[in-house]
Amino acid sequence: MPRRVNLPGASELFRPTQGVPDLVPGPASPASASPRTAPGPQATGRVRHDEKITVYVSSDELVALEQARLQLRAEHRLGVDRGRIVRAAIAAALADLAERGADSDLVQRLGDT
């Protein structure tokens, strides 16, 4: 007798990304009996982004990025994806540029090419 598997429907697979109420952990108001809770995706550190870019990297750079991801997971217990690593690196480079200007690592690296 063949076993029948119940699969989730489309409404269970796809969640709305806009128009979701802001449920951020915070102090409950005096009138509230229970604290507010954050939804799953925000609790994992994932953020919805409105813009997308494509970046081409060499094979060696991709391997190094993946090794960094695995190192973050193994040694620092940070389960992050490559996109979060890239966004963190961009933020660090831009902060360094804003703080140090011509002496920043970004200016130095780009000046060497």
Rank of each mutant, 00 (worst) to 15 (best):
D105W: 01
P41V: 03
I85C: 06
R48D: 00
P35G: 05
D60N: 15
A33D: 03
R69Q: 15
L78T: 04
R48I: 10
H49L: 14
A102Y: 02
D112A: 14
R36T: 15
P27Y: 07
L70H: 08
S11V: 04
G40P: 13
P21A: 13
A102S: 09
P21N: 10
L23I: 06
L78C: 02
A98G: 05
L72M: 13
T17H: 13
T37S: 02
P25G: 01
P39D: 09
T37R: 00
D81R: 08
A43S: 03
A93G: 08
G79V: 02
A95D: 15
P41A: 05
G40Q: 11
S34Y: 06
L70Y: 00
D103V: 01
G40L: 06
P21W: 07
F14M: 09
V107I: 10
P25S: 03
F14A: 13
G45T: 13
K52R: 15
L78R: 15
Q42P: 03
D103M: 02
L70V: 07
P25D: 00
R48L: 13
G19M: 05
V5Y: 11
L65K: 05
G83D: 02
D81Q: 06
G19L: 13
V80A: 08
D60H: 14
V24R: 14
R3S: 02
R36E: 10
V20C: 06
E99P: 02
T44H: 10
I90N: 05
A102L: 07
S58M: 11
T17D: 09
A102M: 04
T54M: 12
V47E: 14
R73I: 00
G26L: 06
V5F: 08
S58Y: 12
K52L: 11
P27S: 09
A43Y: 03
S32D: 07
A38N: 01
A10V: 15
A88W: 09
A92M: 11
N6P: 01
L106T: 04
P2W: 06
P35D: 05
V86M: 04
V57S: 12
R48E: 01
V107W: 00
E75I: 06
V5L: 07
T44V: 14
G45V: 15
E61I: 09
